[in-house]
Design a protein around this nucleic acid. Structure first.
Length: 759
DNA sequence: CTATCGTTTT
């Protein structure tokens, strides 16, 4: 045999490249043939008989709990000669292959000492490798088995196929299928179900479906494999359809069916079917296992019925970490983070899924600092995170602009060999973009081997808001060129690239092509982008027309865009009209009053300004307090205007004083137009220089060495005066200052801003 | 052989 040499080589790091090895296997599978004469069905029966006998007699191995103990028993067997007994051989290998603490390397040593292993032993070895997620080892052993003249049986393939990864399934699925047909094992339902799973894994749903449809003896396991397959690819409606069909064909569901269906109900928020499943259990038509109860708890939680979920939870006799995590998730998804945390704290044990779930709860509640805190606690508890955890933490970093922590996480992923899947890559791009680190966002993007819609959308949007509109559009062209279909979110990034770069004509064209080329009906956000695009470019009339011709009711974001444009282009009359519309929609929206009063101030319409201030006081309308974040040495510091709560407050304020003097000497004149009227000129200045972003920048200046970039995240839009001051700071102190505001980035360098004072 | 919890873009 041509591949005997490699087969003898101790093989196979399961973590080795999943690309090279499967191709190797693929070739071998296509070359492999079963051409031995010394295999016969009598051997199979003989060995099956041995297996049956062995299960009925007692063995000291039955109570064996560790490899150490096993080795003792093994040496005993060698001493008294039992080691030559095929029954004992099978038992000892089975321990190594099937037991939790079993050691496959030891199994392999024993196996290599058996001159004529039985088919049962071959199957056991294959199963052992499969259970330990070493599909390559399992496949190679299968090939070795063929080579040595053994044919597979109904037990061989189910365990072999079970270990497949997506890549292997894609590369070798058909090859193994061919083998199965060749050995005449394709009519076995066990083998068929395993094949169905392989095709689902490799995304070849149609083949799986055909296999299922034309199969003559479908049993409930094939149905279950189909249903769980559709669940895995998130086609829950299809799962439900199959369930209904299954009932029609009078196939009795098993507990596995119900678990899958309950899970589908959770995702579909199908309380009706979910309740039926629960009723089926209550009627004792099926035994309620822990997994089934967990699925039902999740089903109620998914349907938003935490009351019912909790009731079931409390009545459960046994709960595991999944039960608890499901409850934590349930509370998180119904906006009850604190309650989720209380459950989380009560958990008897927490695994990395539980920690990630809690992190996501804080993310959902916009409590990003607490999300980061969870990761620190997780580290302290010595729980190893996985790629899901990394994505959550990176999301928190992105929201907080915490570049240091984000970068630390990137290194952590490398060092700890955490799987860098497409989600992680996308989250890294987003994190770097949202921290204003375009260079690193580009780098991650370049280095990704697979890119999906989210990857492209993330980089396009990241470049757009950081002031690289043209580059974003170039990438959009490349995206189309590589046959990735953009969605409505991608187009938001694309249109905002046009807006931030002032590319009006390109924007108009893309808006049309969105519909004609990709069949995406623009939603209210796209109209918002267009209004923004036209408005910022000073085409206020066209922006108005755009709103008038919208097929849906404009929302506050659309009106807000136009109002913002009125401010930039000082069109008070239009602004008043817009503000009226806006306040009709959201009478309590403080931002509208602020925008309008700023506009009145800019245009010296003091009477109107007083009026609107009075309305605000009378109605008790508060504006959202401005808040700025800055990360220093991995800690996120938060400032609001006039904040004195920071431990280094004194230093910060003396730095501000010095900054104010330096800046004035350099020619900076404060822009007090946006400050309340009722205070004197000097107080106005004080109010200005206590703005949260100035506090954050001052803190950044005193806390970092020369030349270090200062990065600030602000929850609102940057005010005109802070923008002016930041330009001076960047020149005077030779510091790059990057401020992310609500809508875009301002990269201040050498006295200029990337937004070209247009925002 | 088939099954339950956590991940990304406006």
């Amino acid at each position: 045999m041509q591949f005997s040499i490699s087969l003898k080589t101790p093989f196979l790091n399961p973590f080795s490249s999943t690309i090279i090895v499967p191709i190797f296997i693929k070739k071998m599978i296509s070359m492999a043939s079963f051409n031995s004469n010394h295999f016969s069905s009598t051997i199979t029966h003989h060995h099956l008989a041995i297996e049956n006998n062995s299960s009925s007699s007692k063995s000291p191995l039955d109570s064996c709990k560790s490899m150490k103990h096993l080795k003792q028993l093994h040496s005993q067997m060698i001493r008294n000669g039992d080691i030559h007994d095929p029954i004992e051989q099978t038992r000892i290998i089975r321990f190594c292959c099937n037991h939790e603490v079993g050691d496959m390397d030891y199994a392999r040593i024993l196996f290599d000492q058996i001159p004529e292993p039985s088919l049962v032993i071959w199957n056991t070895m294959i199963q052992g490798y499969s259970q330990r997620k070493s599909p390559q080892s399992a496949a190679f052993l299968y090939l070795e088995m063929l080579e040595r003249g053994f044919g597979p049986d109904n037990y061989t393939f189910p365990s072999l196929l079970k270990a497949f990864t997506r890549e292997i399934a894609l590369d070798c699925g058909k090859g193994f299928h061919a083998q199965i047909v060749k050995f005449g094992l394709d009519s076995n339902v066990f083998v068929q179900s395993a094949l169905i799973c392989v095709y689902f894994l490799s995304g070849q749903i149609n083949i799986a479906r055909r296999l299922f449809d034309k199969s003559s003896k479908r049993d409930v396991v094939s149905w279950n494999a189909m249903i769980s397959g559709y669940n895995k690819i998130h086609c829950y409606e299809e799962s439900q359809k199959l369930f209904i069909e299954m009932e029609k064909e009078k196939v009795q569901p098993t507990v596995v069916t119900l678990v899958s269906i309950a899970s589908a109900c959770a995702k579909l928020k199908d309380l009706q079917t979910g309740t039926q499943v629960h009723q089926y259990v209550k009627d004792c038509r099926i035994e309620a296992t822990l997994k089934l109860e967990n699925a039902l708890v999740d089903m109620y939680a998914g349907c938003g019925r935490m009351d019912l979920s909790l009731e079931l939870f409390e009545n459960m006799k046994l709960r595991d970490v999944i039960t608890w995590t499901t409850m934590v998730n349930g509370f998180n998804n119904t906006g009850q983070v604190n309650r989720a945390r209380a459950f989380f704290n009560q958990m008897p044990e927490r695994d990395y899924v539980s920690w990630t779930a809690m992190t996501n709860g804080y993310l959902k509640a916009n409590r990003f600092k607490e999300a980061l805190e969870i990761f620190r606690e997780m580290q302290a508890a010595n729980i190893r995170p996985d790629q899901f955890t990394m994505v959550s933490i990176l999301t928190a970093c992105a929201q907080l602009g915490a570049l240091e922590v984000g970068e630390w996480i990137r290194v952590y992923i490398e060092k700890n060999k955490i799987k860098k899947d497409i989600f992680v890559g996308n989250a890294l791009i987003d994190m770097f973009s949202k921290c204003g680190d375009v260079e690193n966002a580009r780098k991650i993007f370049r280095e990704m081997t697979r890119r999906d819609k989210f990857t492209w959308t993330a980089i396009i949007h990241g470049l757009a808001v950081n002031g690289h509109g043209q580059e974003a559009l170039d990438l959009f062209c490349r995206m189309i060129g590589s046959s990735i279909t953009p969605d409505e979110v991608t187009y938001i990034g694309v249109l905002s690239a046009c807006t931030h770069a002032g590319l009006v004509e390109e924007g108009r064209e893309l808006f049309v092509r969105m519909i004609s080329d990709h069949g995406i009906e623009p939603n209210v956000s796209h109209y918002g982008c267009m209004v923004d695009l036209l408005g910022r470019a000073g085409k206020l009339r066209e922006a108005q027309e755009m709103i008038a011709n919208m097929p849906m009711k404009p929302n506050s974001i659309v009106w807000g865009s136009l109002l913002g444009a009125c401010r930039v282009h000082k069109d008070v009359d239009l602004a008043e009209m817009v503000a009226r519309n806006l306040l009709e929609l959201e009478p309590e929206n403080g931002a509208v009053y602020v925008l309008l009063s700023n506009l009145y101030a800019t245009c010296n319409r003091w009477d109107d300004l007083r009026k609107i201030r009075k309305i605000m006081t009378d109605k008790g309308i508060k504006k959202t307090p401005g808040c700025s974040l800055i990360e220093m040495n991995g800690v996120v510091h938060e400032f609001v205007a006039g904040d004195r709560s920071h431990s280094q407050s004194n230093e910060i304020y003396s730095k501000l004083d010095k900054m104010s003097r330096d800046l004035k000497l350099a020619g900076y004149v404060p822009d007090t137009s946006n400050v309340s009227l009722d205070v004197g000129e000097e107080e106005k200045e004080t109010a200005l220089y206590q703005h949260s972003e100035k506090l954050a920048i001052a803190f950044g200046l005193i806390s970092s060495g020369p030349g270090i970039t200062i990065r600030v995240v602000k929850n609102l839009r940057m005010c005109v005066d802070c923008h002016r001051a930041a330009k001076f700071i960047s020149r005077l102190y030779e510091r790059e200052v990057i401020v992310r505001d609500r809508l875009r980035f301002h990269h201040f360098r050498h006295g200029l801003c990337s937004c070209k004072d247009f925002w």
